[in-house]
C-alpha cells in the first residue's frame, strides 16, 4: 500500500530525497579517495566496497526522486553549482587520516542504522523498499566500522589519540543531519518520513556507549547550527573535481 503524493508532498519528498542522495554521493566521493592509499591492501578492498555501496545508495535515492520530478540523476550530480547541493558538511570534510575517515564513516553508519529502520515504515512504498535493501548493506558497513572504532580506540596510545582528535573534530557536525526544512513536517505528519529529532536522540545515546567502550570521550563542544545549503570552504574544490570531465561536453555520452 503506497500513498500517492499531492503536489506539495511531492515537492517536500523530492527535497528530502535530494538531502539523502547528496549525503551518500559526497560521502562516497571522500571514501573513494582512499582507494590505493589505505593502510593495508585488505582495507583498499574494504573501503572501496563501502564507497561503491554508498554511491549505489545515492543512485537509488536520486532515481526515486527522478520518478517524482523527472530530473536525471547525472544531470543533478554533474551540472549543479556547489550552492545547490544539499549534503551535510560532515560528509564533505577532507578525508584526513585513517582515524578521521573511520570515525566519520562510523558516525554515518550508526545514523543510517537508526534512520533506515525508521524509513522502512514509510507509507511511500518506494522509500520503504529502498530502505530495506540499503539497510542490508549498511548492516555490514556498521559491523566493519564498529570493529575498527573499537580496535583503534583501544589499540595503542597513538591510535587512541588520533581517534579522540577525530571525534573532537567531527562531533560538532552531528546536529546538521537532523535539521530539516519546514515542508518536512508535513511528510512526518503523513508518515512518509520519520521525525528526525527523535532519531537523533536515539542515535546520540547509542554512539555514546560505543565510544565509551572504545576508551573515547564525547567532547563538550556545542553542535554547529548549520543548514544544508551551507557548505564548508572545501566544497567548491570537491565539486569542481567531481564535475570536471562531465562539464567538458555537456550533452555527450560517456
Amino acid at each position: 500500500m503506497t500513498r500517492t503524493l499531492d503536489a506539495e508532498l511531492k515537492t517536500a519528498m523530492a527535497a528530502r530525497l535530494l538531502h539523502m542522495a547528496d549525503d551518500e554521493l559526497i560521502l562516497a566521493h571522500r571514501d573513494s579517495e582512499w582507494t590505493g592509499h589505505a593502510p593495508i591492501l585488505e582495507e583498499d578492498i574494504a573501503f572501496a566496497n563501502i564507497a561503491q555501496d554508498e554511491m549505489g545508495h545515492g543512485l537509488i535515492w536520486y532515481e526515486i526522486r527522478q520518478s517524482l520530478t523527472g530530473e536525471d540523476p547525472d544531470r543533478l550530480v554533474f551540472f549543479r553549482k556547489p550552492a545547490e547541493f544539499r549534503n551535510v558538511q560532515l560528509v564533505e570534510l577532507p578525508k584526513g587520516d585513517w582515524a578521521f575517515s573511520m570515525v566519520r564513516q562510523w558516525m554515518f553508519d550508526t545514523w543510517e542504522s537508526v534512520h533506515l529502520e525508521a524509513l522502512e515504515h514509510s507509507q511511500f512504498a518506494p522509500v520503504a523498499d529502498a530502505a530495506r535493501k540499503i539497510r542490508r548493506e549498511e548492516t555490514y558497513h556498521l559491523r566493519h566500522t564498529r570493529a575498527w572504532v573499537r580496535r583503534l580506540g583501544l589499540g595503542t596510545e597513538e591510535s587512541n589519540r588520533r581517534m579522540q582528535a577525530a571525534v573532537n573534530e567531527l562531533w560538532p557536525y552531528r546536529a546538521q543531519i537532523a535539521i530539516v526544512a519546514n515542508e518536512y513536517e508535513r511528510l512526518v505528519e503523513e508518515r512518509l518520513m520519520p521525525d528526525l529529532d527523535r532519531l537523533a536522540t536515539v542515535w546520540g545515546e547509542g554512539v555514546q556507549s560505543e565510544l565509551t567502550n572504545s576508551n573515547l570521550a564525547l567532547p563538550e563542544s556545542a553542535p554547529l547550527r548549520l543548514t544544508r545549503d551551507q557548505h564548508s570552504r572545501y566544497f567548491p574544490a570537491l565539486i569542481e573535481e567531481l564535475q570536471q570531465v562531465a562539464r567538458l561536453e555537456a550533452e555527450a555520452r560517456w
Partner: peptide, 16 residues
C-alpha cells in the same frame, strides 16, 4: 587474507 584477528579476517574475507 591478512587480518589482525578472526573477526577482521571474516570481514576481510568477505570483501576480498
Amino acid at each position: 587474507v591478512h587480518a589482525p584477528d578472526a573477526e577482521m579476517a571474516l570481514l576481510n574475507a568477505r570483501d576480498v
